[in-house]
Design a protein around this nucleic acid. Structure first.
Lengths: 210, 210
DNA sequence: CTATGTAGTTATCAGCCGATTACAACCAAC
DNA sequence: GTTGGTTGTAATCGGCTGATAACTACATAG
C-alpha cells in the first residue's frame, strides 16, 4: 500500500473512521437530526457507503452507542484497576470522577449516550441502552465498591455533566458567575481545567449534500 | 357557543391544546424527530394551522420549552412557599424532591427539557435553555436556601430522574432488581409510588399523514 | 344585510434524506 | 490473465415533512 495516496483502506479502518464521525454527528444532532451524509462527509467517504456498511442509519446509531458504552466501561475499569483494594470511598469517587472528566475529551461519546437515553421507547435501542446503563451502574456499585447510594450519586453527577455539555454551559462560564459555580460543583477541583478543555469546541459545520 | 359541538375555539384554548400536544410529541421524539403533523393530530387540528400559529416548528419548540421551564419554576416556588423560614436543609431537599416527582406526572415536560439540553449549539435555543437552567439553579440555591453544593446535587438527581424516564427504566423495574434499586436511590421513599405512577405509559402512536 | 376579522381547512410545493441499484477500480490467487 | 471478492462511487428514486397559498366557515359590529 502506498504511503501517500491511500485511496483504499481496510474495512476495519474505514469502519472506525465512520464510527468516529458518526459519534460526533449523532452527539450533536441525535439519531433523528443527524444525517448519514454528514457522517459520510466527516469520514471522507460517500453517503451510500455509510448506509451499506451498517445496513441502515438506525443500525449505525446502535453501533455508535455500543462503542460509546464500551469506552465508558473500559475507562471506568481501567481507573478502578489503579485503586488499592482497601482504598476509602472518597478516594474511589475521586478516581472515578477523574475518569469521567477524561471521557469528556471526546464530546461525542457522552452526548451520543445522552441522546440514546431519550430513546427508551424505541424497540431496538431501548433494551440496549437500559441494559448498558445498568451494567455501568453495577460497575460503579460493585467493581468500584461504591454501594448503591454512592453509585447512583456518581451517575447523577455524570448526568449533570452531560447536561452541561449538551447545553454548552462552558460558552457562558467566562461571563456568568453562576454558570462557573455550577460547573465547579460538577467537576470539583478540576473545574477550571475541564472548562478550559471544553470551551470553544467548534460546532459541526453544516454540510450540503455531496 | 354551543356546549356540545365546539367546532371553533378561542385562540388561547387552541394554543394551549397545541402546546400540550407538542410537549408530548417533542418529549418523546425531540425537535428533529417530532413532526408538526403529529402535534396537529394530538391537538385535533390541521398541520398547517400548527405551523401558522407559531411561525415555524422551531418557534413551537421554543414556546414548549419556555412553558416547560415556567412549569418547573412555578412548581418549585410553590413548594418553597410551604416551607417555614427556618426549616433545616434536609427538609427543604425533601420538599423540593417531592415537587420534582410531581413534575414527572407529565412526562413531556421533563423529557422536552432533556431534549432542549442537547440543543446548546443551536443559536436560537442555546441561549434560552442556558439562561432558564441557571434560573432554576438560582431558585434552588437562593430561594430554597440550599446553597451551591446541595443545589447542584439536587439538579444532578433531577437529571438522573430525567434519564431514567427517557430510558423507560420503569419498564424493566419489575423484572430487574438493579433497575429497582437505582430508581429507588433516585426517588427515595416514594420510589414504588413513583414507579407505579409512570409505568405503562403508552408510547405515542405513529400517525400517518392527514 | 354586509363588511371585516378570526378560526380553520385542503391542496400542493419543494427540499431533504435514507435507501437502492448499477457500475468502477483495485487486488489476490490460481 | 482472468476470475472473484472487496472497496468504493455516482446517480437516482421515493417518501416524508415543513412551509405556503388559496380558500371556506363562522361570528360580530354597524
Amino acid at each position: 500500500m502506498s504511503a501517500e495516496t491511500e485511496r483504499r483502506s481496510s474495512s476495519e479502518n474505514r469502519r472506525e473512521q465512520i464510527l468516529a464521525s458518526a459519534t460526533a454527528v449523532f452527539g450533536e444532532r441525535g439519531l433523528a437530526g443527524g444525517t448519514t451524509d454528514a457522517v459520510a462527509h466527516g469520514a471522507g467517504v460517500s453517503q451510500a457507503y455509510v448506509v451499506r456498511m451498517f445496513g441502515s442509519k438506525q443500525e449505525l446509531f446502535v453501533a455508535v452507542t455500543e462503542r460509546a458504552c464500551a469506552r465508558v466501561m473500559e475507562t471506568f475499569r481501567a481507573a478502578i484497576a489503579t485503586l488499592p483494594a482497601d482504598s476509602p470511598i472518597p478516594q474511589r469517587l475521586e478516581v472515578l470522577g477523574r475518569a469521567y472528566v477524561g471521557l469528556t475529551a471526546d464530546r461525542g461519546i457522552l452526548l451520543t449516550l445522552m441522546h440514546a437515553f431519550t430513546l427508551g421507547h424505541d424497540p431496538r435501542i431501548g433494551p440496549i441502552i437500559r441494559e448498558r446503563y445498568l451494567e455501568i451502574y453495577r460497575i460503579a456499585r460493585d467493581e468500584a465498591g461504591l454501594g448503591p447510594e454512592q453509585a447512583s450519586h456518581f451517575l447523577a453527577t455524570g448526568m449533570l455533566i452531560n447536561t452541561g455539555m449538551g447545553m454548552r454551559m462552558f460558552d457562558v462560564a467566562e461571563s456568568d458567575a453562576d454558570a462557573r459555580e455550577l460547573l465547579g460543583c460538577m467537576w470539583g477541583d478540576e473545574a477550571d481545567e475541564a472548562i478550559a478543555l471544553m470551551a470553544s469546541v467548534p460546532t459541526l459545520p453544516d454540510v450540503g449534500r455531496r
